[in-house]
Design a protein around this nucleic acid. Sequence first.
RNA 1: GGCCCCAUCGUCUAGCCCGGUCUAGGACACCUCCCUUUCACGGAGGUAACACGGGUUCAAAUCCCGUUGGGGUCACCA
Length: 600
Amino acid sequence: MPTESEPRLRAGRKSIRECAGTQSLQSAAYLFQTPTMTQPNTIVTRFAPSPSGYLHVGGARTALFGWAYAKGRGGRFILRIEDTDQKRSSESASIGFLKDLCWLGIGWDEGPEFESFGGGDRGSYFQSERLDIYNTHLTRLIDAGQAYWAFDTPAELDAQRQAAKARGNPYRYEGTTARNIAKETVQQWLTEGRAAVIRFHTPTGPIVIEDEILGSATIPAGEVDDFVIRKADGFPTYHFAVVVDDELMGVTHVLRAQEHFNNTAKHMVLQDALGFRRPIYGHLPLIFNPDGSKMSKRDKDKLLRKASADRKMEQAPAGTVDAATFAAWRGDKTMQLPLADAERLAASLGVSLPEINVDDFRRSGYLPQVLCNFLALNGWSPGNNLEKFDNEFLQRTFDLSRVVKTPAKFDRMKLLAFNCDALQAMTAAEFTVLARAHGLSEHPEFMTRLSESQFVQLASASHERSKTLEDMFKANRFLILPDAELPYDMKSVLKVLVSGGGEAHLRAARDLLAKLSNWDAHSIEQLLKGYAEANTAGELGKVAQPLRVAVSGGTVSPPIFDTLAILGSSSVLARIDRALTMAAAQPRGTEAATQSPRAE
RNA sequence: GGCCCCAUCGUCUAGCCCGGUCUAGGACACCUCCCUUUCACGGAGGUAACACGGGUUCAAAUCCCGUUGGGGUCACCA
């Protein structure tokens, strides 16, 4: 179970200026870390996300495959944080997704320390703390003439891109100008503190990418231009950091999303220039929404925008989002509402937010092993018509040769079905344990209102109709409401009590229940079945439905005997009386019954 | 648009590499019926796909070419 203990960045980070400046680049020692290779043929994979509070399901699958591949072969799995983007520094302190990884059962041998995972002697596992290392290798490249300083401003580059576009040509950075600047001039400009990046001098010639999943592809000569490997702020770009770290950390297999496929060419030329080994690559197919759009954390906001636009909503309902935030959000389509705000707004709009992050699925009552199982099925399958398996099986069986090349659409219905199956396969005791844990973390009000024995009864009555751990809490709110505050669905009252003639049976049942001495599910069952035998030709529904409506406010609840038993006699009688009064107040006749609006 | 990749039921996929056993298998969803105190579960059936066009071959979902369609990528983001 995840706790409130947010993973935090390790203390003692060097300040950026301290190690990212031009000076430190020039004076950096030539340290070429040689990793202590444990065994020569150990398989090492890594998951290398940028910092974030939440783990996206796509990232979760990448991590799962990397983990399974290495662990199933006696290898190591590394977690590395790619925090080289200072513009996202507000997020960089947030590596909350570590708890999501733990929850899924994906542990890492090396990386940030969290729970029992992490550590390792090839750190830091935060790229922002490895600037000295990158600078060392950057210097090598510059000294060898394989990289050079470039002083173009973003505006100049932008203009060049625009011009190329206007001409209808694909834009490629033309490096000759920058490369022809005299060494002394470069030195002088650097001393003056001019903003500069380092670009890699990409060799000409086609580049052949070998991929274990996609096969091989040839990128024609000239496609890869002189890309930036060190930004003006002194941080390396992704391409450079990834290549250096994978080498130094001994990564043998790189499993990552297919969107990185074209980047591989850049990484390969860099590896050649640096004299590095080349890992084996496997690019995983992407995961999409059912409608074919890319699954994104912005999907929640997208849905809320549509819902509020449909309702022509000009301001947020009271108590959901404050006016300023709402206005800003309406004005900026790329802005994301804070999660709590988004959830309050969704609740008041009556829409439910799509689950995108691993934590969303956890909160919706999905089991971690089911999520892993299902995620693995998106892009991979073990064959033999086998679909249900655990992570241990995945470890043993996962292989790159069975990864498909086509993108998958994430099918929530199938996930739900899998979760239901897993829940049904449990014993009552197992289910109760999980239900209690879920209730404690997501629905504390249930746990305080219900006694232990009431909760156990509810769990056992809900088990067989639960598709998620969330269902029993979502469907049975009526149990914990004060009797006088129970909302009634008037359509049900009208249909079952008024026009359906349930009122009489309800009244009769009330009298019998009031006299019942042993208030437990079994006794209630005896009583009601006896009543049905004698009065409704054995049709239990004739009395069960009126009771259900009276006691729950609607037509859906756990088995009526359990429901009444959990509620207790005084609540049951009070609610029946309320329902009876309500029914008596309704105008008779079919017209009234069919067109009355719902109350409350 | 340039470059790269991909293409089996609505969806996830098996089969393809090593052509015949594929009148294409499974799962989810959907439809019908059964069970039933509501909801759900469960049981029994059913609808449903090799994108298209050319080759190669005695024989192609499987090999080749093209077309169409989809995706990825073209940042001082990763």
